Computed example of a mutant assay.
Amino acid sequence: MGADIIKDSEFREWLIDLKGRIRQSQLKAAIKVNSELLRLYWDLGHEIVLRQMDAVWGSGFFEKLSKELMKEFPEMKGFSVTNLKYCRYFYLFYSQSNQIRPQLGDEFDNLLFSIPWGHQKFLIDKCKSVHEALFYIQKTIKNGWSRAVLMNFMDANLYQAQGKSINNFDRLLPELQSDLARETLKDPYNFDFLTLSENYKEKELEDALVTNITKFLLELGQGFAFLGRQYPIKVGSKERNIDLLFYHLELRCYVVVELKVKEFEPEHTGKLGYYIEAINNQLKKDVDNPTIGLLICKTKDDIEARYSLKSSSQPIGISEYTYSKLLPEGFKSSLPSIEEIERELNQDDMDKMD
């Protein structure tokens, strides 16, 4: 009887829906508990600062408070001396700017109390301003970042890099897409997850990025879907190849990426604009937004890049990349390839069988 119910499609669909609703309720409960806990820590920090308790009672204040609270609430965590001091830091850090909270209103509280306490402690330690902390809080909420992922993006200095590329989006894109596109692109991109030898060529950089596509997509940011490398595009009788082609799920548009391992040159934007026009004519559908281009180069003169974009009729962003893990020339080629390692292992297995 039970087996028949499990096989019933209507029952299975209801069960999937029920499980989903239970998970959502668990998540909402966890968020609510977390929110109430952070409000408690905020109020506690506020009381300590307002009454200047640590100044009035001296260095032993936190030890005494910790002892009393743990004695009264033995089942609760979070009343260690270190955590009580973090409550004070928590309030002081976000209270340092009197303008942000009135400007954001209820949204400020929603942001402040919506991420785990472990994330908050990390932000208090690492962020130089409330603006920077709120930036990472919004990203964490939007993308569901774990603390480890948050730490990785902070180590890569996402706050400083995102939205800093030189571009002409405000002139050539609708306002909404322009703002989102500007926030999406970074400058510089960090390629330290690669392994390259000295004097590497553009093809080697492209090969390495595609080999490490998961890490490359993480560095590009949320929303990029990889469509292909050396993507063929035919115009007239000639076929040309785009270095890397992506589709951005939030921007709802194709993104043409060209790589340059040397300094930016004005003619680079002309070639990229040509590819953008070709994609708009051959791949873009009515539901897609205008294609944008991203030129990633080793270095650029910002003034020269801005001049080049003024004369372009296509939306383009220009960013640099950083890479600091060069191997000595010839070292990379001396390493065995995956195929060679596999052959060696297979030969060992054959020898053992003999």
Rank of each mutant, 00 (worst) to 15 (best):
R23S: 14
Q24K: 15
Q24H: 08
Q26L: 11
Q26F: 06
L27G: 13
L27F: 07
A30N: 05
I31N: 03
V33M: 10
R39E: 07
R39S: 04
W42C: 02
G45E: 03
H46R: 09
E47F: 14
V49Q: 03
V49I: 12
R51F: 15
R51L: 15
A55D: 10
A55C: 06
W57F: 15
G58C: 03
S59F: 02
G60E: 09
F61T: 12
M70P: 11
M70K: 13
E72C: 05
M76Y: 11
M76C: 10
M76G: 04
K77N: 12
G78E: 07
V81Y: 00
V81H: 00
N83Y: 08
L84K: 07
Y86G: 04
R88M: 08
Y89L: 10
Y89E: 06
F90T: 00
Y91A: 01
L92F: 04
F93E: 02
Y94R: 01
Q96E: 13
Q96Y: 07
Q96D: 11
Q96R: 12
N98Y: 14
Q103G: 15
G105T: 14
G105F: 13
D106V: 15
N110C: 12
L112P: 01
I115C: 09
P116H: 09
W117D: 01
W117P: 05
W117R: 03
G118K: 03
Q120M: 12
K121V: 13
L123E: 00
I124M: 01
